[in-house]
Design a protein around this nucleic acid. Structure first.
Lengths: 361, 361
DNA sequence: TTGTAGGCGTTATCAG
DNA sequence: CTGATAACGCCTACAA
């Protein structure tokens, strides 16, 4: 990917086609963009000549430069690129995006914003692609990409995070959803909770969510969920301070297991686990099961996301409309209804990983 | 996506920055591309000014036009865009591609080649994105994209299909893998087979694979697998003609069920099913189970791909290294070892959807 | 219906 | 280390 044009056995351009049949290059251009600006025959002749000469149509880069748009949508997220195909929730969002792109006939380029934590004086990049607009998916508010994206002067849409003034936003009511989840468990008689949280900042921290970290949460969706969980508990007369919280840097089953291990070893083991993702919840489930627990008899576990696997695993969880997020994002991006905020509905999906609190102990 | 530049409150360019601090635009350009071509101070000053002015670095389109490369890889496949996130096998391949792109810091753009079956005189497009090279994933040999991609004069790599002279190819030995699968079942005593095939051409046909269709298979990987299955059977003394084959246009469980239904209703119902994908196999499994069959006591089912779900479902299948395909593709694409062919290894993964043939009937 | 002239924002070349 | 000048390939008034 270094040598400029080793492939150039001289690229075929508009001009070549024009010269070939003896018209101006404007005419050729018209043949592609404004078919009704020339006779049918001529157009046919041109297209044929193009094929013979091996002209593959207007060069994308040149076209973009001249017109100012590219027909490509950029999807920016803060994890590594492969994440797009491995994380179930992200995948579902992308499925929605792809659905919309498909009908719009725009291409979709995936851009990872994780490479941008470089040294300050090194200019950040938003990927190499020329893009008509960006969808920012759950990017940390302090990621430098955000400012840069705004300066780029192209349409922007944010999913989940962060809320930016004057920029369309799509998300759910995280606080409410979390609140409802906790409340449901409280209704089942649970009084001892444990929380497994997703990352609150991007420092790759795995461990107890300390008081200090709690005051420095940069990921607003996480803050909201935490608030929701704790609010429900507090209202029920529990002490929020007493609830052990484990923070994981990565959304995976492995981390869920670790969290479960910690919670189970805490001074007063919980009878109910609130996990901020299904992956974490499923991991926790595995851990407790292999530790001899019966679920939900001995312990209840509540997930978040409602990924496909949650269904087959019988995990009680918060359903959120991932695919809709993607669809809505493209919609807002293209129709440019600036300053639109969309809050998509969630709902509890009760399956059999939750049940009444076990009687005493 | 129509108005050219409604967003242009006058874009900030190199020139603006240059004018601002009174140097030539070349110097600004150098600040970004050739840091050692100017003093550290000056560079710092420039970067600072850029930030103040809201200059976000070289415009991708312009840069691409000037340099001839874009830092973006195009992944072209013949299904709809959302397929990239729903089809397990494709997803695994993309995961590999993404892995490589991530380390190379290139963006990845997904392009669907399914929109290109338009009227002939309408120029085909390979997507709108400016791309440094294309990975063609299992595109039908007669798809017009292929010729076009070759004419575009950028690096190309083909995965699975079709084999193109002078273009790097990555795939597996489909014939051999299929042969081994059939042979394994023969070894278990099976004599009555049924095959559920993936599509042999892109005409959305669902139904019996007629003799005529069999002579017109455009999808070479499918042809190879079929050949492998049948060769093993023939060598074992069976009549290939007698083996019922069902063709499906879509790779889904639903279609697998349909195929199973047909095979089970054939004049002499099979004791072993060879499915060309795990999705189809899993669908077939469901169908037979709900029809009262015990698997593998009454019936054996052999899949293809080894997707994650095959594991949990206990499906015997052919494992192929999807992710490796993706990784290798990017590698060949970027290092330009033209004319390289890579055949990745497969292996049978025996689980419990296959067993000895049932005794008589 | 066709052609002419200018511009899109960068990079590359090559003197200074 | 810096700065003109010429591509890059196409689009878009505008004039013919």
């Amino acid at each position: 990917m270094n040598k400029p044009r080793q492939y150039n056995r001289r690229k075929v351009t508009l001009k070549d086609v024009a010269a070939y049949i003896g018209v101006s290059h404007t005419t050729i251009s018209n043949a592609y963009i404004r078919p009704n600006q020339l006779s049918v025959e001529l157009r046919k002749k041109i297209l044929l000549a193009a094929q013979e000469l091996g002209y593959t149509g207007p060069d994308p880069a040149a076209k973009q430069l001249a017109t100012g748009r590219s027909g490509v949508i950029g999807f920016l997220f803060s994890e590594d690129l492969p994440y797009a195909f491995s994380d179930p929730a992200l995948r579902a969002v992308l499925q929605g995006v792809a659905l919309s792109c498909n009908t719009l006939k725009t291409d979709l380029t995936l851009i990872s914003a994780s490479n941008n934590l470089q040294n300050i004086d090194h200019p950040v990049s938003l990927g190499n692609a020329a893009v008509d607009g960006y969808i920012l998916y759950s990017v940390a508010p302090d990621n430098r990409c955000i400012l840069m994206a705004q300066q780029r002067n192209v349409p922007l849409v944010v999913i989940d995070q962060p809320r930016l003034s004057n920029i369309p936003y799509i998300g759910i009511d995280d606080r409410k959803a979390a609140y409802q989840a906790a409340q449901y468990l409280l209704g089942l008689g649970h009084r001892k909770f444990g929380i497994i949280s997703l990352k609150t900042a991007h420092d790759n921290y795995n461990g107890v969510l300390t008081k200090q970290r709690r005051h420095n949460i940069t990921h607003s969706t996480i803050a909201m969920r935490l608030e929701g969980y704790l609010a429900a508990c507090t209202e029920a007369g529990l002490s929020a301070e007493a609830i052990p919280i484990w923070e994981t840097a990565i959304n995976s089953k492995e981390q869920g297991k670790e969290g479960a291990l910690f919670l189970n070893n805490s001074s007063s083991p919980p009878t109910a686990i609130l996990a901020m993702s299904d992956c974490l919840a499923l991991g926790a489930m595995e851990h407790f099961r292999s530790a001899g627990f019966s679920i939900p008899q001995d312990l209840s576990i509540f997930g978040f996301d409602d990924i496909p696997e949650a269904h087959s695993a019988g995990l009680t969880t918060v359903h959120q409309p991932h695919e809709q997020k993607g669809i809505a994002a493209v919609q807002l991006l293209t129709q440019q209804t600036t300053r639109d905020n969309i809050s998509l509905p969630t709902r509890l999906v009760i399956r059999n990983s939750t049940g009444p609190a076990p009687h005493k102990k």
